[in-house]
């Protein structure tokens, strides 16, 4: 990158400092300060109290439920995202733009509405409420509902990340593999997957962060039963409302830690992905079969 500063191309020094300063101030006010606040509040009564708060059975149950929800939602989204991106990027079919719109739907719908949809469908007064009640299946105010809501809100992450990557790569390598006698399965594992692995990992990291941090949709379907249907973000809210600040901030610090780990992992994956792309040949425009 060209880093020489030419006076003819740059803004005056005071203006640059003003812009950078504004950026940093913003970052400090909205990111660094809250993070510091979370940690100070969590440790206000010492490390002992902090650890005790985290070892409460209800806190452990919340952590467990969060891990279960993410553990189901992320693999599901991984499979769905790869298949959807594969279909959209490599094939031409009717209804393609409709599918893309549907994938984006969870981004445009408020998470609370998303949760409400499931209450309307599976809730006691919902479409299937009677049937579920008779067969003693609990969806709303139980773990399945939380998983469903999590899957819904994280739906677009993997697919959205992969579609541009796969579209940019075109189909030439896959076609080459087919002419060389590879089956569809071999082509996917040996050609497609290695080409998308960094994009895929990036999508999974973002998906996981969202799955663990989701509040709105999960809050609607959860029912807030302590030790049973509370995920970590919901648990934080309850503790806070009970003025149990140390425990609330201790649990919040876990989520903050998750955010920091996600950020680090995301940067690492971006860096590796770019390094790999730099190695890749210059992307030529996809060849249309119409010549």
């Amino acid at each position: 990158m060209n880093t020489t500063t030419s006076p003819t191309l740059n803004e005056p020094a005071w203006f640059r400092r003003l812009l950078i300063g504004a950026g940093l101030a913003f970052l400090g006010l909205f990111l660094a300060l809250p993070l510091a606040a979370v940690l100070t509040e969590a440790l206000r009564q010492g490390v002992g109290a902090y650890l005790v708060a985290l070892q409460e059975p209800v806190a452990l149950a919340a952590i467990k439920l969060t891990l279960i929800a993410a553990g189901i939602a992320v693999p599901l989204n991984l499979i769905f995202g790869v298949t959807a991106a594969w279909a959209i990027a490599k094939f031409e079919f009717r209804g393609k733009s409709l599918l893309i719109t549907l994938i984006d739907l969870p981004f445009s719908v408020s998470p609370v509405i998303a949760g409400l949809i499931y209450v309307l469908i599976f809730g006691a007064q919902g479409w299937f409420g009677q049937y579920l009640f008779e067969n003693d299946i609990k969806v709303i105010f139980a773990v399945p509902g939380i998983v469903l809501a999590t899957v819904f809100v994280t739906f677009p992450f993997v697919a959205r990340e992969l579609i541009p990557v796969m579209e940019e790569q075109g189909t030439a390598e896959e076609e080459a593999a087919l002419t060389l006698g590879a089956s569809g399965w071999q082509t996917f594992w040996r050609v497609t997957l290695p080409n998308i692995k960094w994009g895929l990992l990036y999508g999974v990291i973002l998906c996981n962060a969202r799955a663990m941090g989701e509040f709105g949709a999960v809050s609607v379907v959860s029912g807030h039963i302590r030790g049973e249907t509370n995920t970590l973000p919901l648990h934080v809210e309850i503790l806070y409302n009970e003025y149990n600040f140390v425990a609330a901030f201790a649990c919040a610090s876990l989520l903050a830690l998750l955010a920091l780990v996600t950020l680090a992992a995301k940067s690492f994956v971006e860096w590796r992905g770019q390094a790999q792309r730099a190695l890749a040949p210059i992307a030529l425009p996809a060849v249309q079969p119409s010549t």
Partner: peptide
């Protein structure tokens, strides 16, 4: 394609990078 026994050389080569 797989069973035709053709060798195809693509325009942007399509090597597995």
């Amino acid at each position: 394609v797989r069973e035709r026994g053709v060798g195809f050389v693509f325009q942007p080569y399509a090597l597995f990078h």
